[in-house]
Simulated scan of single mutants.
Amino acid sequence: MSTSSLDAAWENPLRDPRDRRLPRIAGPSGLVIFGVTGDLSRKKLMPAVYDLANRGLLPPGFSLVGFARRDWEDQDFAQVVHDAVREHSRTPFREEVWQQLAEGMRFVPGDFDDDAAFKQLRDAVEELDSSRGTGGNFAFYLSVPPKFFPKVVEQLKKHGLAKGPEGSWRRAVIEKPFGHDLASAQELNAVVHDVFEPDQVFRIDHYLGKETVQNILALRFANTMFEPIWNRSYVDHVQITMAEDIGIGGRAGYYDGIGAARDVIQNHLLQLMALT
């Protein structure tokens, strides 16, 4: 048997079929970020997109569309992404990667209740389909305060953006916190699922994507030094400390409406405690 046929037949016995992390280059697709001028987008999302491109995991025609209340042109948006990437990306900045990514960048100015802006967004998506070959596959990332989730989702439905051409896919990515109590979470669920099917919706907490957080379980169960002693017989107590050096920054309005406790304690810190 040839080496190539052996490679084709081999499967990693340790790989869980539920593991959705990218084992290969993504297919034709694009990403629309609502609230693209916010803290999360500048520090996490846009640098992460660049890092994927830098590692060769994005398709050549990948496109990035930003939606926010700024009077920008496409080149202004590209400059903002450029600056965010230079400051926060985890992989070295390469000009050739940046140029290829920048060709697929578009910006749509407007409010979430602005029908003209959503029509412009649909035109941008259709233009990218033809010029960049995204195949009608788009994910919509709601990097906005939770009170805007229903409005954005309803606008996507109203303007025909929630459903793509035959054979393509659409996804909605919704950040925590998801509602402020059980009733509001159920109400938000009803609004979202009126537009997207359950398997089209990703409710995420970006904190769980951090390598240190993901490594806790491996450190606990796969490390022969820690595994026998990581239990109540040897551990006296656990302290979870959140130490940030960036301060409130531009997040004052967000925290004023959401509350720092609900933003980090019930999500990040309780999850860390549960994993530990």
Rank of each mutant, 00 (worst) to 15 (best):
S184D: 15
F148Q: 06
F140H: 05
L188Y: 07
V213A: 08
E227W: 00
L121R: 07
S143Q: 00
I229S: 02
V235P: 00
N215V: 01
N189S: 09
A162L: 10
L156C: 14
R170L: 10
L182Y: 15
H193L: 08
F226N: 07
E166H: 12
G249Y: 10
P228Y: 10
G135T: 11
G179L: 08
G247N: 00
F202Q: 12
Q214W: 03
E175K: 10
Y207K: 01
I248H: 06
G247D: 00
E227D: 00
K151T: 11
V144P: 01
P177F: 03
S131A: 06
E211H: 08
T241P: 04
L208A: 12
N223K: 09
M225F: 09
S130W: 02
D181R: 13
I216A: 04
I240A: 03
H193A: 09
A183N: 12
L217N: 02
Q200R: 07
V173K: 01
V153S: 03
I216L: 07
Q200A: 09
I246W: 05
V153F: 02
R132E: 06
V153P: 01
G135R: 08
V238F: 08
E211K: 08
M242F: 12
P165W: 00
I248M: 10
A218E: 05
F149T: 00
D205L: 10
L142A: 12
I240P: 03
K147A: 05
V192I: 12
H159P: 07
G247V: 00
G209V: 05
K147V: 08
N223P: 06
N215A: 04
D236S: 09
R170N: 09
V125H: 12
F140S: 03
A172I: 12
L156H: 06
D129R: 11
I174H: 10
Y234V: 02
V192F: 10
P198A: 09
F226Y: 09
E197Q: 14
D123I: 15
I204L: 15
G250L: 14
Y234L: 01
G249L: 11
V173A: 01
Q186D: 14
E211L: 15
E126A: 14
G167F: 14
W230N: 08
A139F: 07
S131H: 04
N137D: 05
Y207M: 01
N215S: 15
G250Q: 13
R251L: 11
V153G: 01
Q155K: 13
A172W: 04
V173F: 02
G167C: 07
L188K: 03
I240C: 05
A185L: 02
E211N: 10
G247Y: 01
A139S: 11
E197V: 11
K210R: 14
D245F: 15
F221N: 02
V213P: 02
G250W: 12
V125P: 07
P165H: 00
F196Y: 12
S233R: 07
V238C: 04
P165K: 01
E166D: 08
L121H: 15
E244H: 01
A185T: 06
L208N: 10
T212A: 11
H193R: 15
A190P: 11
R132S: 13
V191S: 03
F138Q: 09
R122C: 04
E175N: 04
M242V: 06
R203M: 03
